[in-house]
Simulated assay, not measured.
Amino acid sequence: MNGERQPFFNAPWPPLLVTGVIVGLYAIQSFAPIGPVAERFGFSPAKLADGDWASLVTPLFVHADWTHALVNAAMALAFGAPVARFLGAGASGVTGFFLLYFASGVLANLGHAAVHPGETAALIGASGAVSGLMGAAARLIATRGARLGALNSPPVIGMSLALMIVNLLMAVFGAPLSGSPIAWEAHLFGFAVGLFGIGLITRLFGRRDRLTD
């Protein structure tokens, strides 16, 4: 970001690709009944216990409805853009971006399984991965993307508290607009992965000069 406002349409291509994949795949998926899609591609602790490791990744590509898909797509673009700019447009930066995105999604699902062992209800959506981008972006707000902000900085603490409150409210009342239950624990695990993982990614992919002072 380098202290300058970036136009919306000038977002780096990695978050644009994520956004396009979420919307494009749901446009195709919307022609199929949600039940079989969730059963085939969704994640559940029971499926993982049966050895279905692919189900840790496949839910990131399917969504419950248009609202679910569009909200995740919008958040992927909003929070993914500053993360992608920070990591850089080179091969290492792009690799780091996608590693962070998928690691957040996979570990969010594993966190959900740890909290709900043996549960058979299917979890779908890219919310855990998107929450990881949100956690990473929280580290960049105070510094305008110049370097990683400290974990105890006001923006990080504020975003963390806000996410916890919103997810606890959704745990009680259901998701906005639909009122359906959500895997709110996965959101919190994904956010934590992004919050802490962006530091590791920064070290591994050649951005050590942009670590917290």
Rank of each mutant, 00 (worst) to 15 (best):
H112S: 15
P176G: 10
Q29A: 15
P45M: 08
A84K: 08
G96K: 06
A76I: 03
F98D: 08
G135R: 00
A136L: 08
V156F: 07
G197Y: 09
L25K: 09
I165E: 08
G111P: 12
A137C: 11
Q6S: 13
T19G: 15
G158I: 12
S131Y: 09
L195V: 05
A186F: 09
L163N: 03
E119K: 07
A91Q: 12
R203H: 10
P12F: 04
S30R: 14
W184I: 02
I165H: 03
N2D: 11
M159W: 09
A129K: 00
N152P: 02
G111F: 11
L161C: 11
P155V: 06
V23Q: 02
V193S: 09
S44G: 11
A122M: 15
F31C: 05
A146K: 00
L77W: 15
I157Y: 03
V172L: 10
V94F: 02
F43L: 06
Q29Y: 07
Q6F: 06
L195A: 10
I34E: 02
W66F: 12
A142Y: 01
F191M: 08
L195K: 06
A162W: 01
Q6R: 15
P7R: 15
A138E: 01
A121M: 07
N152I: 00
L161W: 05
A113P: 10
A54Y: 11
A69M: 06
R207L: 09
S153D: 14
L17R: 03
G179F: 06
P82V: 03
A69R: 00
A108Y: 05
A129T: 02
Q29K: 12
L99D: 05
A146F: 03
I157E: 04
S44I: 09
A126D: 05
M75R: 04
H63I: 06
D213A: 14
G51W: 04
D52F: 08
L168H: 03
A32P: 01
M170F: 14
T58Q: 07
Y101A: 02
V18T: 14
A84D: 10
A84G: 14
R147K: 12
A69V: 01
M75C: 15
T19A: 13
H112K: 09
V71A: 14
L60R: 01
L77R: 05
F189Y: 15
E39P: 01
L48P: 07
V166T: 06
H116N: 15
A146V: 02
A114H: 07
T95P: 11
G20L: 06
P82Y: 00
N152D: 13
A192E: 04
R208V: 08
I22W: 12
